[in-house]
Simulated scan of single mutants.
Amino acid sequence: MELVKPGFGLVFWTALTFIFLLLLLRKLAWKPILGAVSDREQSIKDALASAEEAKKEMQNLQADNENLLKEARAERESMIKDAREVKVKMIDEAKTEAQAEAAKIMEQAKAAIESERNAAVADLKKQVADLSVEIAEKVVKGELADKGKQAALVDKLLSETTLN
């Protein structure tokens, strides 16, 4: 087997065709291909920049959300504390009011009992006075008549009289 040796003409036409094809590709294909690659590279850079900006914005929003959550929790705790204080205050006021009302009712009951007792004592004194006057009348009448009768009359009246 023998190796083929190219001639000068073949090398010349091959080189000329290659240069022509290279110039044609440079004129028609390289600029659009390089432009498309450049546009693609720029769009990737823009997308990366906007993604980085969105990431920073998300971090800022997350931080804001956390701050809002902390504030809401603090406000909720404050409201719960205030509600508990109001509850305790209301209970204390109700107890104080109930104690005052109970004391008032007790005073009214004591006054009513004292009034009833005074009325009963006054009634008893009146009955004793009436009985004493009756006995005195009868004794005086009986004394004027007879001493023996007087003693019998006093005994009889005492046995008939009952104290309520």
Results as ranks from 00 to 15, higher is better:
residue 2 E to Y: 13
residue 2 E to V: 12
residue 5 K to N: 12
residue 8 F to P: 08
residue 10 L to K: 03
residue 12 F to H: 02
residue 16 L to Q: 01
residue 17 T to L: 11
residue 22 L to E: 02
residue 23 L to S: 05
residue 23 L to P: 10
residue 26 R to L: 00
residue 26 R to Y: 05
residue 26 R to I: 05
residue 28 L to G: 05
residue 35 G to V: 10
residue 36 A to E: 11
residue 38 S to T: 07
residue 38 S to C: 10
residue 45 K to T: 14
residue 49 A to I: 01
residue 54 A to I: 05
residue 54 A to N: 10
residue 55 K to V: 03
residue 56 K to T: 12
residue 60 N to S: 15
residue 61 L to E: 04
residue 65 N to K: 01
residue 65 N to P: 07
residue 68 L to H: 03
residue 69 L to A: 11
residue 72 A to R: 09
residue 76 R to S: 09
residue 77 E to A: 03
residue 79 M to I: 06
residue 79 M to Q: 08
residue 80 I to Q: 14
residue 88 V to N: 07
residue 92 D to Y: 00
residue 92 D to V: 06
residue 96 T to S: 15
residue 100 A to K: 03
residue 106 M to W: 03
residue 107 E to F: 01
residue 111 A to M: 00
residue 117 R to W: 13
residue 119 A to K: 05
residue 119 A to V: 08
residue 128 V to E: 07
residue 129 A to L: 11
residue 131 L to Y: 10
residue 131 L to H: 10
residue 136 A to W: 04
residue 136 A to L: 05
residue 136 A to Y: 11
residue 136 A to S: 15
residue 138 K to D: 07
residue 139 V to H: 02
residue 139 V to T: 14
residue 140 V to G: 09
residue 144 L to M: 10
residue 145 A to C: 09
residue 145 A to H: 13
residue 149 K to S: 08
residue 149 K to N: 03
residue 149 K to F: 01
residue 150 Q to I: 06
residue 150 Q to M: 15
residue 150 Q to T: 14
residue 151 A to V: 12
residue 152 A to Q: 13
residue 154 V to L: 15
residue 162 T to I: 02
